[in-house]
Nucleic acid binder design. Structure first.
Lengths: 212, 212, 212, 212
DNA sequence: CATGAATGAGTTTTCATTCAT
DNA sequence: TATGAATGAAAACTCATTCAT
């Protein structure tokens, strides 16, 4: 679970609705006009509140984006947990790979425009948040690799996990950028599976290539 | 070769020197203070010219970054050409993979701070330029895949090329962000090779995983 | 007694308590955070009421400070009355001077931080209220000067009263600003007495200085 | 001489003119509309420049007021120096007193409206600058008291200097507030002289009053 | 009466760009 | 052509005050 502490507490029900309205307003502006054009005035207008109200709940503009990212990361964390569960309960390597892939695809297929704009914001901040998230993801993958080690080629687990997560998210992110619909195609899903599986497979031919 | 049409009169010698000074100034500010703090006045000062002069050679601030990106992409295009050459002359798949990888690593190891800041700028623009570049890269890879098709598993070439390029650049870019030195480690090089080779290898186990 | 007309319905008991709470809240915020940081919301919070309630009893923020000043001036008025009494009943000039001085010192030694912040507020308003107060003080002093005229040097009474009051309050106010504790020192008390007494004394040497 | 370092250096002649225009604009707004209504936009407009220009020369609004105060204090410092000179060269106590008084009166008679508004600003800042200035003034007075000690009543010099400066500035400041013209009247000048002279005179009757 | 969320005019400040010298 | 002072639109943020509940 991520922080969310920056949002003020006016615990009343009305408050929650307003906060939601602001975040939804920001999301809409991000989607329709992009990060660069997403100012506090515009956000407030779309949210149907005044700037003053906006600042009653968020200390500054950035904190709105941060909250949006928090929520995005919460979704991803949930996906991660689903992967962990799916992996823990079975010896089926294929199931693990499918779970990992499917969760990732699902997460990226939801509201891709918004995600792209938030990604731009993250770029601004040096990707600090997303980087941390991906590190946790690496932890999950590393655990899975350890568990199934017997059926995989010999691996430097942390490095392999890093490569896997980076490759997978690299592919998914770029495809989402080019055309989010692609992520729904079975062929794409299959190829990503091939990428992951081929990398860890005992039949991987690196040994034959004289790299180094 | 990329555009560069925005820059006025590269004919006079004095002019060329000034343009270079401005670009170098911008690069320095980007490296030392980051994109967010990189204003025209600061650039001009570091370049040792006045803002007025800066606007004599560049129509606006963005065009400076665009030119810097042009040059970055020129370097990458050169790397791409090197890969094409290396691949065309040989039947050695390993050599092709190594060439691809090495060029990519080399490109990302040069001036990583500057590249990160330019990447932030590109994020702002929706990665239009980088995306176009990666598409060209996909063309090169697709050609190589066609050429060596006989020794690879059956592939949907365009899709496979896309996955390969995205995976590779995804890994390299993220590692460069985490720690650029990583890119110089032989182990990393080997694992990237494994990622690429495993994906296209006829021994890839996707068929066994019942993905769809 | 000063106005206080701005405060609504001091009739109900509950009301009076609330008004007191608000004034006490304001005083606390003034003391601890200063005039600049003393907003209505903060005042209300410290008073344990809502902003709405605050505005039920005070028409605007200024009126709170005005009331606080009213009370300060009431204290000073009381001090003034004490001086008047002390002066009326006796022919002792020394007693009059001592009374004047002691009341003034006592008033300024009480809650100096609050007084300083209220003084800043008064500065904002052009010192209107304090000026009026000092004028009344001048009246008292003028009366005393008339009464004891026989034992003093020849004086333009209103002007002399003005000079006396201005000098005395000028000294006390500044000392309070520099260090309120100073006001408690006997040496200081003695010097202020010397200032006042020397000014009106028949032995005053102005005549010898050829000032005009 | 006071700092003035906050003002940027664009050494050209044009610059100086602009800085002067801004300061004059600020002075005018202060005089005609008061500190409270003196915003950057209004200052710039009166100065005949744009806000941007204003911020080219002053880092923020406060720095404009600070510079105005610097200049005011420079005038006062000059007055102080004149007093020092006048006092050093003579054994005439009357001359010293007259010089002190006259300089003070002259300084306060120049542009009193502006001074009052700057005084309000200083109130905001806790009178830090003015306080420091008055301390220096106390030093000057203390020196004079030491020099003429033989002809004065026994004094605790630092305390006496403090009382004298506080009394004098208190009187002058308040009179300037009530009605600046008063400061020009000979009677007033005479009474201030009486205040100062009576305080230090060997004939001062404090000893007779049983204070303490 | 009490509440506190909502308001929005107003303020300061920035910075890409222009243009007179 | 070079200069750098001037521009001013735009953005973020504040806070006294109101009013629906």
């Amino acid at each position: 679970m991520t922080s969310r502490s920056k949002v003020r507490k006016p615990s009343q029900e009305r408050s929650r609705v307003t906060v939601e309205a602001i975040l939804e307003g920001a999301s809409q502006v991000l989607r329709s006009e992009g990060l660069a054009a997403c100012g506090t005035t515009k956000i407030a207008k779309r949210a149907g509140v005044s700037v003053g109200t906006l600042y009653q709940y968020f200390p500054n503009k950035e904190s709105i984006f941060e909250e949006l990212i928090d929520r995005l990361l919460d979704q991803r964390a949930a996906a991660r947990s689903a992967v962990v569960e799916a992996t823990e309960d079975t010896e089926d390597l294929g199931a693990a790979v499918r779970s990992l892939m499917d969760q990732l695809l699902a997460v990226h297929m939801a509201d891709p425009e918004l995600q792209h704009e938030l990604h731009k914001y993250e770029a601004t901040r040096g990707f600090t948040r997303l980087e941390k998230y991906e590190q946790q993801m690496q932890g999950v993958v590393a655990a899975a690799l350890e568990k199934h080690a017997a059926r995989l080629r010999p691996l430097n687990t942390p490095l392999a996990a890093r490569v896997l997560v980076h490759a997978m998210t690299g592919v998914v992110e770029r495809m989402s950028r080019e055309n989010p619909r692609m992520l729904g195609e079975p062929a794409v899903r299959r190829e990503i599976a091939a990428l992951l599986a081929g990398y860890v497979s005992p039949t991987n031919p690196v040994a034959l290539l004289d790299v180094e």
